[in-house]
Write a protein that binds this DNA or RNA. Sequence first.
DNA 1: TAGATTGTTAATCGATTAACAATC
DNA 2: TAGATTGTTAATCGATTAACAATC
Lengths: 227, 227
Amino acid sequence: MTEHISEAVIRRLPGYYRHLRELEDQGIKQVSSHELGERMHQTPSLIRQDINSFGGFGRQGYGYDVSELKTCIGSILNLQQPHRMIIIGAGSIGSAVAKYQSFIREGFQTLAMFDINPEKTGTLFDEIPILSIDDLELFLQLHPVDIAVLALPGSEAQMMLERLIASGVQAIWNFAPVDLVYDEQAISVVNVHLSDSLQVLSYKMAHREDVIPSSEDQANGKPENRG
Amino acid sequence: MTEHISEAVIRRLPGYYRHLRELEDQGIKQVSSHELGERMHQTPSLIRQDINSFGGFGRQGYGYDVSELKTCIGSILNLQQPHRMIIIGAGSIGSAVAKYQSFIREGFQTLAMFDINPEKTGTLFDEIPILSIDDLELFLQLHPVDIAVLALPGSEAQMMLERLIASGVQAIWNFAPVDLVYDEQAISVVNVHLSDSLQVLSYKMAHREDVIPSSEDQANGKPENRG
DNA sequence: TAGATTGTTAATCGATTAACAATC
DNA sequence: TAGATTGTTAATCGATTAACAATC
């Protein structure tokens, strides 16, 4: 089952998972590549290619079993086992991540937050202890975690990454607006560059009229978008 | 200057902008595609292709003028003119966006937040008024904005999108975990699907060992990553 | 069976990398 | 001038779409 799944497919996997969960919640047992494609604003062909690339088995003339496919994708994403996280930086971003309930449902649990500000350290935020960043290594020795969330100024992110690798952290969810330098074999990193995302929106807004819809698109009423 | 810039290039534009600003802050006046590629973990060839696709003119034997290139990219991203925003949802994500200072520096200004909770409405958050969602249309009549940030439950996002379009909002920065349905001609949308991003990290972490580095990569010491 | 829909191959499209002449 | 580096064309690579035989 662990074939080589392409980068493009992996980025779509959480979307599939989300839509399959919605279908399951609605009591829908079965779905075709056409229906799923419609929901996700993708071609049925792409859906079938994607699902086949990790061997989820549909049935001809029927489609895919919603629960089976969801479970399969969940297991590829490694969501069946819980993940323990810490958050570095108890500012607004760090706090928002700590409070964001959707993760918890999927088994992501925050053990502690770390900050340099002595007015914050020693207190609780939403039942999560805020500790001094000086205690990071000691804490990780006692409570190993998988994931560290970097929610601190860009100027400190690289240094913190190195401390975290040294303490055996496996994965970094980076909110700092920098491109970290690291060894792919030593750690996994995913960036959430909020400013970058907002700037792309600024571009799109300014250049919306540029995209002249082809007469074909207009003719067959195809204004809907891939979200 | 407004050629057709490909989707892939646009996604990289904010990264270029960020690195060029850093170089400028360091007093560096000039940069080659090789140096910029090194910083951004991209090939020099890609850098040149990208920059050429919008006609930024380098000089042979010299490279690119940092300030000139930064200004050019900033103007493509439409960052020279200020943007007015509102935030729908005064929960943890909405509050984090309101406080995130990096936007403000680039001219993104939050005029108001909206919420349904009567305990929040009528108060100020960090000098930003929190208004009742019932007053949305009236507010937008008096204070037109470009961008609305959707930081509310997924179940309400689609309905809110339609209200916002009706009130003339041009762009949506969507933090709700849903794929919105909309007409590309009517509005621009960029998603920040935090759960999706975290799930991709979960995948990467679980499958890190899968990626066997080719002997070539090991030989020429190429462990660094594209961030 | 007939109709629907998958799995899979082939065709197309787009994005990245390589190469090199032009030129500062 | 000699060396460096761009702009640009061609080659490669990967991702998406189209098509259709297999089969439930």
